[in-house]
Design a protein around this nucleic acid. Structure first.
Lengths: 242, 242
DNA sequence: CGGCGACTTGACGACTTTCAAGGAGCGTGG
DNA sequence: CCACGCTCCTTGAAAGTCGTCAAGTCGCCG
């Protein structure tokens, strides 16, 4: 094992990486950068040459509508890619904003594509990681399309918890969560006012409590049942490719 | 140019494929199969060894909720992948149903992964195609989260039109569309009844008319404006990788 | 202390769903 | 040939969910 960055941990879950592959991966980590909360990291329409891996902190990717509304597509937590799609499509179709101060490591497109050429299995691994991210977006889409506000919130908090647990940042008890009710509203397609009401409702039902930057699962099983939560699509036991 | 299947057309838009790459691609097309409308092609939870490229007809990918509701994630039109994510994740997190009778060509996972190893640029191309599909899902997500029923419908019909135009099946005048109002409802997160009302509304506003399996843009520019439609994320002029 | 951002709560109204009832087109079988 | 059943489309009325507007609290910081 040559290094143990979040990227290696993530891709390692899919393909068993050889030492040469690991060293190619290691060479991708150019420089480490930090960004402050709230200032966009990527702008919609911008043309990028670099993607990032989130090392610490939270970010979100969102789209702005002409009328000023915004829809948060996904939150990124440590280990996640930032702007991979922007790079591949050559133009960003969305913006990315750090929710907290974040640390990232930069990856240049050219390096990434060269790495694919040298070690094709890496390409497969990245494709897999991208598919996994897409599955998350799809689940979010189902939230917006077919769940009412309370189920949506419940499902969303559970999913976030499951993702955080995968990188050691959460458990069935709960997790630290830096999101404001405004951010939740933009993610869940609700108004901030309604987010507040729904949170109260879930708290009074003694299923989850979101307070002071911490999500506490008061009754995990009941919440899972209420939200119709399934984490099969996140379950991943060891590398598929050896 | 060795062949000119939908897959080649699609990937060719991203990378300029060499003859050896084209021949690897050609070898992927195992057998052609047909499926009848309505009978699932892939079941949620099923473990697949094959993905497909849609040659003719329409399909849709959807998720079922425990309470019987369903959310259609995306429609697939000729040239699109079917079940690529299922294959990569090793378990399908969604179902796929042919909307019409469809013809597909089968692609075995193992062949696909081998092809990646032989021609890494192919992997890059597929990654790009997957990113493009994801961009579509993201736009759909914004529809559900932040547009009201009429805007949502308008935006959806425009996007479908733009996608069809890319493969020569539609224009700014309109396109043949085999979707029922029930399918539209499941895609847009609305009730079938409301879909009907919204379609009437758009028809009476003389922007679009959806009747007898045909979407007619009565006033394309007005509709684009009404829906806040941007196709920048679909615009793709020639290969990015040479 | 005043200002500010995030959170709360109530009242009212708009957008959507649900419930109910019909109508039109089409293939099947008597 | 026509009735029947089925799917899809259409429309109205009542009921609910959720957004908007408005006002007020709390903690933090200059």
């Amino acid at each position: 094992m040559i290094d143990n960055t979040p990227l290696v941990r993530k891709l390692g879950a899919f393909v068993a990486l050889s030492d040469p592959e690991l060293s190619v991966l290691a060479s991708l980590h150019k420089r480490r950068r930090t960004f402050v909360a709230g200032r966009d990291l990527v702008h919609q329409g911008q043309s990028d040459q670099a993607a990032y891996i989130l090392a610490s902190g939270w970010a979100c990717s969102y789209k702005l509508l002409e009328d000023g509304q915004r829809q948060i597509v996904d939150f990124q937590i440590p280990g996640d890619f930032l702007g991979l799609r922007s790079v591949l499509l050559n133009v960003s179709d969305h913006s990315i904003e750090p929710v907290t101060d974040v640390e990232v490591t930069e990856i240049l497109v050219t390096d990434l594509l060269n790495a694919f050429a040298q070690t094709p299995r890496l390409a497969t691994a990245v494709l897999w990681a991208a598919s996994r991210d897409e599955a998350m977006v799809v689940e979010h889409l189902v939230d917006l399309g077919r769940r009412d506000a309370a189920e949506r919130m419940a499902h969303f908090l559970l999913e976030l918890g499951a993702r955080l647990a995968l990188v050691g940042l959460g458990s069935k008890g709960g997790y630290a969560c830096p999101l404001t009710q405004y951010l939740l509203a933009d993610a869940l397609g609700l108004s901030a006012v309604h987010v507040n009401r729904v949170l109260r409702q879930l708290r009074e039902a003694e299923m989850v409590t979101f307070r002071d930057g911490f999500v506490a699962f008061d009754n995990y099983d009941q919440l899972v049942n209420f939200a119709g939560f399934e984490l099969s699509y996140m379950d991943q036991k060891g590398p598929l490719l050896r």
